[in-house]
Amino acid sequence: MPLDLDFMIRIFPELFRALILTVQISFLALLFGIVLGILLGSLRVIGPRYIQIPIQWLVNYIRGTPQLVQFLIVYFALPRIGIVLNEYWTGVVALTVIAAGYEVEIVRAAIESIDKGQKEAALAVGMSEVKALRLVLLPQAMRRMIPALTNELSNVIKASALLSVIAVNELTKVGNKIIYETFYFFEVLIEVAVLYLIVIGVLGWISSYFENKVFAYGEAITATEVR
């Protein structure tokens, strides 16, 4: 079955705009997710138990329920509690919730991967737990998080396809719309898939670039320790 290339080129601008929107929303969600993730992830490590446990529940809930369900809950729940946002920001909030759920764990794991001597040394010079976290643990944990976070951005972009159900004009939604108008199933779907692939491929490349750099840093440490 030959593809109608002319058609594919004609719809490209519209799909490209949708792609930009998709990346934008995903990026914002990741950013807010990182802020939330660092906050909650830190509390998860040094907070009192009555804070740690609810955070763990939240994480379990987010990881243990379908993302579509979470989207719909955010979509319907926000207006109920008096927060009326347009589709764009509803989408950002919904995706942020998902991203944060994973990032809390990324942050926690990164902090806990730092040698415990670092924290003890910080406490021994008279730092509080909060200062030890802010000045010693987080700066080191941050660089270990980078690969996982870049990877997480790909996941968020894939999850953003679900925003089509709440009428955000992201890539999947726009693709669907064109299909309904023209019935060019394959042309549209293939083009949509390729666009996702390119973006996620680029991110994967960035991710492994960071990973190698971070890994190289780790190697440098052990190499000089032996000396």
Partner: peptide
């Protein structure tokens, strides 16, 4: 935390802030 400031500690594994 405040009282700890008066006691310096040196560890076997150095524990410099990496």
């Amino acid at each position: 935390t405040k009282k700890r400031q008066h006691i310096g500690m040196v560890f076997q594994s150095f524990n410099l802030f990496a």
